[in-house]
Design a protein around this nucleic acid. Structure first.
Length: 715
DNA sequence: ATAGGGTTAG
C-alpha cells in the first residue's frame, strides 16, 4: 500500500485532503515551478499544525541549507514586495494547476495508454542447435565468419534467423549476420529484425550504426514502432547524444506515431539527464492529464533528477505524486529516493524512508546500503552507521565491493579505525571483494587523518607488493600524513613512486605539498618539499622564492600572485594563499604575510572576513589557516588603532569567529588564536554563550589599543 | 542478453 509512504511524508508537511483525490481533468496539484511550486509546498508545511511538533529529533540538525531556504526566507521577499494582503497571498499560493483542460474540448493525448504488444515466439524445436550455432558464430573471428555461416544447421527461415540474431554478440557479429540474412532474400525484413539488431548495437554503444539502420527502415518503408524508437532513444542517451534522442522523439510524433509509456519514460529520462526539469515536469503532467498512470520507473526517473539537483521540494513532490496516484515504490525507487535524500542533505528523512522500505517487506540490496552508508558517514551519524552495520550482519544483507569501499569511506568520515580494519581484513579473505585501489585509498584516508604514518606506509608498501597503483587521492592523504609526521624522506619516496606510476598531480595535491612546506622548520626539509612541488607546479615554487626575496617589490608580488591564483583551481585558491601566508610567518616574513593577506582579499579569496553591524564588528577566520588568521587579527587591530587615534565611532562589541573546534580541521585554530591573543595581551576572551567566538568590549579594546599606540606594530 | 524504459563510490 502507498500508505506506507505516509510517515516520511506527513512528518514534514500535510497534504490537503482535497489534493489526495486527483480530478481527472486537472494536472498535478503542485506545480513544479521554481517559485510557485516551492511556495505551494512550503505553505502547506508552515500552516500544518503538526509540522514542528511531530518532527523527529534528527531533523533539528537539518536546518535549511542555503539551497533549501526556510519558509520564512522564501516568503520574505515576496511578502515584502508583491504580496500585500494575506488573502492575496493565499490566492497565489493555493492557485490550482495552471494546465486546466476543458472537459468539453479535451486536450490532445501525449501518449498512448496501451503499451505496444510484443509478438510471442512460437516454440522452436531446434532451439538448442541454433543457439549452439549462434555461440559458434559469436566466437568466430571476423575472417572466419563467412565459413562459419556455412555450418548453419537449419535453413535460415524467419524464426530460425530471429533466434540466432537474438543470441549473437558482440554487435559486430549481429551486424554481419543481419546483413547476411538480408542477402539471402528468403523472407521480407520486418521491424523486429531491425529492433533485435539495434539492441545488440546498443550494447556496443554504436549509435551511428543504429541511426543508419533507422534511416534504412524509413527509406525501405519498414515501420518504426515504439520498440524501435525507444531503442534508438536509449542508445543515444547511453552515448550522450541527447540532441539525437530528442530529435528521434520528435520525429516519432511527426510520423503520427504515439509513444507508449516505455518510450515516454525513456524520453523523460533524456530531459532529466539534460537537467531540463521544467520540460520533464511538463511532459509528466501532460501524460498524467492524458490519463496515464505512471509506473515506478517513471518515479525513479523523477527522483533521480531531483536528487541530482539536490532539490528537496522536488523529492517531496515525487513522494506525494506516488501517494496520490497510489503507486507503491519498488526497491529501485526507494534506492533512488534514498540517494536523492542524501544529495539534498536530509539524513533523517533518508533514515525514516529506509525504515519504511524495510517495514513494507522489501529487502535492501547493495545499492540501498551503499546509499545509506554514504549518508550516515557524511552526516557523521556514528550511532546510525553502527546500527546499520549490525543489521547488515545479522540479516545477511548482500554486500559487494562498492558497498565495502563505501563502508570504509564511512569509517573514514566517522574515524572508526578498528571497524575499518575489520572490513579491510574481511575483504582480503573474501572471494569476490578483494581490496582494490579504492579500498587502499579509503584506508590511507583513515590512517592519514588519524596521523598514523607507520600504518600509512605499511599500506603503501602493501600496494607496491600487490601491484595496486596509488591514485591522486591516496597520494594526497599519504603526503599530508607524512608531512605532519615530518617524515620528509618517506614523503619524497612516495612522491617519486607516484610520478613514476603516472599519477597526474592536481592543484589539491600541490596545496597539500605547500602546506607541508609551511610546516617545515628545517630548511633542508623545506628545500626537499619544494623540489617535489617544483615538478608539479614550477610557477608556485617560483612564487615562493619571490616571497623570500627581500628585493621583491610589492608590484611584482601582486602581478605574480595574480598569475598563480588565476592558474589554480577555484577551490584551491584560498588554501594556496593560506599556506603562503603560513610560510611567510614561519620564516619571519611578517610584512609579506600582511601583503599576501591584502592581495588575497583584493582577489576575493576572503569574501566574508569582516562583518559589521551597529552593535558589533566581527572577524570571521574560520576558513583561514592559523597563520592567516593571526595575520588577519593583527591587521584588524591595526585598523582599530587608527580608528581610536582618529576618535571615530566604534560599536559596543568586537568578536572573532574561529569556529568551535568540533571539526577536525578547525581544532587547532581556536587554540592557536587563544594563545596568540594572550601573547598580545589583547582583551579577547572565549565566549561562554557563543561557542567558537572570541569577544571583546569596546571599552577594554580601546584601553588596550591606547596602551599600545606608542609601540604599535602598524605605523 | 530471447525486440523497448529507471538505481550504487572521492
Amino acid at each position: 500500500m502507498a500508505a506506507s509512504l505516509s510517515t516520511a511524508l506527513d512528518v514534514h508537511f500535510t497534504i490537503p485532503k482535497s489534493d489526495t483525490k486527483r480530478p481527472i481533468f486537472f494536472t498535478s496539484p503542485i506545480r513544479h515551478n521554481p517559485t510557485k511550486k516551492r511556495l505551494a509546498i512550503s505553505c502547506n508545511s508552515s500552516t500544518s499544525e503538526t509540522s514542528s511538533s511531530t518532527k523527529p529529533p534528527q531533523n533539528i540538525s537539518e536546518s535549511p541549507s542555503p539551497k533549501n531556504p526556510s519558509l520564512s526566507d522564501q516568503l520574505k521577499p515576496l511578502s515584502a514586495t508583491t504580496l500585500s494582503t494575506k488573502d492575496h497571498q493565499a490566492q497565489l499560493l493555493s492557485r490550482p494547476k495552471s494546465t486546466w483542460v476543458n472537459p468539453t474540448r479535451p486536450k490532445r493525448s501525449v501518449l498512448s495508454l496501451q503499451r505496444q504488444k510484443k509478438s510471442l515466439y512460437s516454440y522452436n524445436p531446434q532451439i538448442r542447435e541454433l543457439k549452439l550455432f549462434a555461440k559458434k558464430l559469436s566466437g568466430s573471428g571476423e575472417d572466419e565468419f563467412e565459413s562459419a555461416l556455412e555450418t548453419i544447421p537449419y535453413p535460415p527461415t524467419r524464426e530460425n534467423a530471429l533466434l540466432i540474431l537474438n543470441s549473437l554478440r558482440p554487435w559486430q557479429k549481429t551486424r554481419l549476420f543481419f546483413n547476411w540474412i538480408k542477402t539471402q532474400n528468403v523472407f521480407p525484413m520486418e521491424t523486429i529484425f531491425y529492433n533485435v539488431t539495434m539492441k545488440s548495437l546498443r550494447y556496443g554503444l554504436q549509435f551511428d550504426i543504429i541511426e543508419e539502420l533507422a534511416n534504412e527502415m524509413v527509406s525501405n518503408e519498414i515501420q518504426l514502432d515504439n520498440i524501435t524508437y525507444s531503442t534508438i532513444i536509449t542508445c543515444a542517451k547511453k552515448c550522450s547524444r541527447f540532441d539525437k534522442a530528442v530529435e528521434w522523439f520528435e520525429r516519432m510524433y511527426k510520423t503520427g506515431l504515439m509513444p507508449d509509456e516505455v518510450t515516454y519514460s525513456a524520453i523523460l529520462d533524456v530531459y532529466a539527464k539534460l537537467g531540463k526539469v521544467e520540460e520533464v515536469l511538463s511532459l509528466y503532467e501532460r501524460g498524467v492529464a492524458s490519463g496515464w498512470k505512471p509506473d515506478p520507473i517513471t518515479f525513479s526517473v523523477l527522483a533521480k533528477m531531483f536528487g541530482e539537483a539536490g532539490d528537496y521540494d522536488g523529492i517531496r513532490y515525487v513522494l506525494q505524486e506516488m501517494k496520490s496516484l497510489d503507486v507503491q515504490p519498488n526497491l529501485v525507487v526507494y534506492n533512488t529516493l534514498l540517494e536523492a535524500m542524501g544529495k539534498a542533505g536530509k539524513p533523517g528523512l533518508a533514515r525514516s524512508l529506509f525504515e519504511e522500505m524495510v517495514d513494507s517487506g522489501l529487502t535492501p540490496n547493495e545499492k540501498t546500503l551503499t546509499a545509506l552508508a554514504k549518508i550516515y558517514g557524511k552526516a557523521r551519524w556514528a550511532k546510525d552507521a553502527m546500527d546499520l552495520w549490525e543489521r547488515m550482519k545479522s540479516n545477511s544483507w548482500p554486500m559487494d565491493f562498492i558497498l565495502y569501499n563505501t563502508l570504509l569511506n564511512m569509517c573514514a568520515d566517522l574515524g572508526l579505525v578498528e571497524e575499518a580494519e575489520m572490513l579491510f581484513n574481511d575483504m582480503k579473505i573474501s572471494e569476490k571483494c578483494r581490496p582494490d585501489s579504492w579500498t587502499f585509498t579509503a584506508m590511507l584516508n583513515i590512517y592519514g587523518s588519524g596521523g598514523n604514518a607507520d600504518k600509512s606506509m605499511e599500506l603503501f608498501e602493501e600496494m607496491s607488493r600487490l601491484g595496486i597503483g596509488l591514485n591522486i587521492m591516496g597520494c594526497t592523504c599519504l603526503v599530508q600524513c607524512l608531512g605532519k609526521a615530518r617524515r620528509i624522506d618517506d614523503l619524497v619516496r612516495v612522491f617519486n613512486v607516484a610520478i613514476d606510476g603516472g599519477v597526474k598531480l592536481d592543484d589539491r595535491f600541490c596545496g597539500c605539498l605547500l602546506s607541508v612546506a609551511s610546516l617545515c622548520d628545517e630548511s633542508e626539509d623545506f628545500t626537499k618539499v619544494l623540489a617535489c612541488l617544483k615538478q608539479a607546479n614550477p610557477k608556485l615554487v617560483a612564487f615562493v622564492k619571490l616571497i623570500e626575496g627581500e628585493e621583491t617589490s610589492f608590484e611584482t608580488l601582486k602581478e605574480e600572485f595574480r598569475a598563480v591564483v588565476r592558474d589554480a583551481a577555484v577551490e584551491t585558491r584560498r588554501p594556496f594563499c593560506n599556506c603562503l601566508i603560513d610560510i611567510c610567518r614561519k620564516r619571519d616574513l611578517h610584512g609579506r604575510a600582511h601583503e599576501l593577506l591584502y592581495l588575497g582579499t583584493l582577489y576575493g579569496l576572503y569574501p566574508d572576513l569582516h562583518h559589521k553591524t551597529v552593535k558589533e564588528w566581527s572577524l570571521d577566520v574560520r576558513s583561514l589557516s592559523v597563520g592567516a588568521a593571526l595575520t588577519a587579527l593583527e591587521e584588524w587591530m591595526g585598523t582599530l588603532t587608527k580608528f581610536v587615534q582618529r576618535d571615530e565611532e566604534l560599536p559596543e562589541l568586537f568578536s572573532a569567529h574561529t569556529g568551535s573546534g568540533t571539526h577536525k580541521f578547525s581544532q587547532g585554530l581556536a587554540n592557536s588564536f587563544d594563545s596568540h591573543v594572550k601573547k598580545l595581551a589583547a582583551p579577547f576572551r572565549q565566549s561562554e554563550e557563543r561557542a567558537g567566538h572570541f569577544v571583546a568590549t569596546r571599552e577594554d579594546l580601546v584601553t588596550w589599543v591606547q596602551s599600545r599606540i606608542p609601540s604599535s606594530v602598524i605605523a
